[in-house]
Structures are given as structure tokens and as C-alpha cells.
Write a protein that binds this DNA or RNA. Structure first.
Lengths: 117, 117
DNA sequence: ACGATACATGAATAATTGTTCAGACGTTCA
DNA sequence: TGAACGTCTGAACAATTATTCATGTATCGT
């Protein structure tokens, strides 16, 4: 002799709905996810940390994190398409820098959080 | 007739050294990486966003992101070991909440950054 | 004590992400 | 123009991460 159609189980429907309604827009959410993905790798963090100090070319960056030029180039492409870094060509070289101040904030905030563990 | 021992290539040694010396400690860097990894998934972002508003039990959270209890439980374990969430048992249920304010800051900062893309 | 409910876990599989390797492109300099 | 250098790219392979499924543990109501 059940009272309601749905098996109510333990789920608090109204709570769930309330929280779902407060969700950020999908595009925002996926945007943030992509940014965090970019920050979720130690070498990319090193690259970004380096670039927060000075502009550098690809082979400097490769030397920095001790991987092949190719590997760095792949990583830089990811960072570029995620709009975390920008680049300019100067002769044979390509110099990278952070796209904006925001990136550095996130990076610092993450490191600060890690400090407290 | 080479001047120096190392093939200098294009690498700016002094620049690279300077930047390497400024690197954050390894433990910090890896700590930050782990945190960002946790944030690098849309469902985990949803979970954290929800928990930034109210404490919730596992089956609420599963309903929220529309995956199995088991899958959510696995994700919650990751968040727990990364110290992003805490939990308390109340009878049969286990209620989760954010571990501290910091997490919410990071989340908000990420969403804000995504807004500008 | 028993069955039912809420949650957790390990192992296998599926999906995603990173690296390497071979080669292409663009620029410089002879 | 062509050889050398710095960088980029695609495809194959390696490594990491997420989900499922089956089963385990804790608590409650009877």
C-alpha cells in the first residue's frame, strides 16, 4: 500500500531541485572544467608559473621542464586553445606568455590551497 | 671552432635557471596539481557547487548528477582523500560538506575565469 | 537475528590524456 | 635556392582516470 508513485528512497527531492536550479550554466561549467584540466598537470603548472614571470620561447620551456620540444609544443597548443597563453613569433622563435592576469590568480590560489593540506 | 662546451642552441640558460629557481616546492606543486585534477571534471564541479550551498547525503548527490550511487561514492572518495570534502554519518546516511571555504573560492574563481573566455 | 536500506570497495573494462616518432612548415643565412 | 634551425602536427602507443558490476560493511526497523 504505497502512498506515492515514485519510490521516494532517501532522496530529498526538494533539496535536489533547489540545488540543481542554482547550478551554473552548462557552458560556464564546462568552461571551468577545461581550465582546471589545463592546470591539472605538474608540467603545465611549471610552464604557467614560468610564464607568469617572463616571456619564453619553446626551447627554453622544453629545457625548463626537461621534455622534448615536441611534447612541450603539444602542451602549449592545449594551453593556447584554452586561452591561457598567447604567443608571438620573432624570427625563427616563438615566444609565449600568459594570456591574462586571471591565470596567475588561479595558479596562486591553487598553490596557496595546497600549502594548507 | 666552438666557443663553449654545451651546444648553446637557442636555449637561454640564465633565463631558464632563474625561472627554475623560482619554482614552487615539489610538494606544493604536486599538491596543487591534485587539487586541480579534482576540479577538472564537470560532475565533481557540480558536486562541489552543490555542497557549497548545503550539506547532502550520497543518494541526493547521485540523483543530482544522475549517476549510480557507486560512481558517486568513488568520486566522493577522491574528493575526501584530496581533502576537499568532509563527511559525517547520521544513522544510515552519510552527509557530505565542503572541507573549507578555500574550495569554494577556487571554484568561483574558475567559473569567473570561464565567463570571460 | 533477519531483511532492507545506505553507502563503500576491488577488480575489470571503457574512456580519456600524454608522449614519442616521423615528418611538415616557416624563417634565416649563406 | 638550399641547408639548418626552431616549431608544429598527426598517428600510434603508453599511461592515467572513470564507470560498472558484484560484493562487503554499517545501521535501522521488526
Amino acid at each position: 500500500m504505497e502512498k506515492d508513485v515514485c519510490a521516494t528512497s532517501c532522496v530529498n527531492r526538494s533539496r535536489v531541485e533547489r540545488v540543481i536550479n542554482a547550478f551554473p550554466e552548462e557552458t560556464l561549467l564546462y568552461g571551468a572544467t577545461e581550465i582546471f584540466k589545463m592546470l591539472a598537470d605538474p608540467n603545465r603548472l611549471r610552464l604557467l608559473h614560468a610564464l607568469s614571470q617572463e616571456e619564453m620561447c619553446v626551447c627554453d620551456l622544453a629545457a625548463l621542464v626537461e621534455v622534448s620540444d615536441s611534447a612541450v609544443s603539444h602542451q602549449l597548443r592545449l594551453l593556447r586553445t584554452a586561452r591561457l597563453v598567447k604567443c608571438r613569433r620573432a624570427g625563427k622563435m616563438v615566444y609565449y606568455r600568459l594570456d591574462d592576469q586571471h591565470v596567475e590568480n588561479l595558479l596562486q590560489e591553487g598553490l596557496r590551497h595546497a600549502e594548507e593540506g
